[in-house]
């Protein structure tokens, strides 16, 4: 249990976009960027337009662009809901 990772899932109305583990998730909320680390308190927030990044244990960063949506943190599960989300090239 040494690893402290978040279960991260990105959902769009047409299906799951991404599912994986991450040590950190950074999203653009309506009022600015927001970072989530291990043991974050339960949180629900509305997302604005901007980037969404997940950093995995080995340091690789994945990035998406989302336009609106929601982010929920609950028991180290991060769920992102967005109807307009695409992977950044």
């Amino acid at each position: 249990m040494a690893t402290k990772t978040l279960q991260c899932e990105i959902l769009s109305p047409e299906g799951s976009v991404y599912r994986g583990e991450a040590t950190m998730v950074v999203a653009t909320a309506v009022d600015g960027e927001l970072g989530v680390l291990y043991n974050h308190a339960p949180l629900v927030t509305a997302l604005g337009s901007g980037s969404l990044r997940t950093t995995s244990e080995d340091g690789t960063v994945k990035e998406w662009t989302a336009e609106g949506g929601f982010l929920e943190v609950h028991k180290n599960h991060v769920t992102i809901l967005s109807d307009k989300i695409s992977e950044k090239a």
Binding site: A29, D31, L34, A41, P42, L43, V44, A46, H74, K75
Partner: peptide
Amino acid sequence: AEFILEPSPAEILENLLPR
């Protein structure tokens, strides 16, 4: 669980209901 609602419950609803 008690969720922290950011920026406010009202603002979340405003986005959520149309969705």
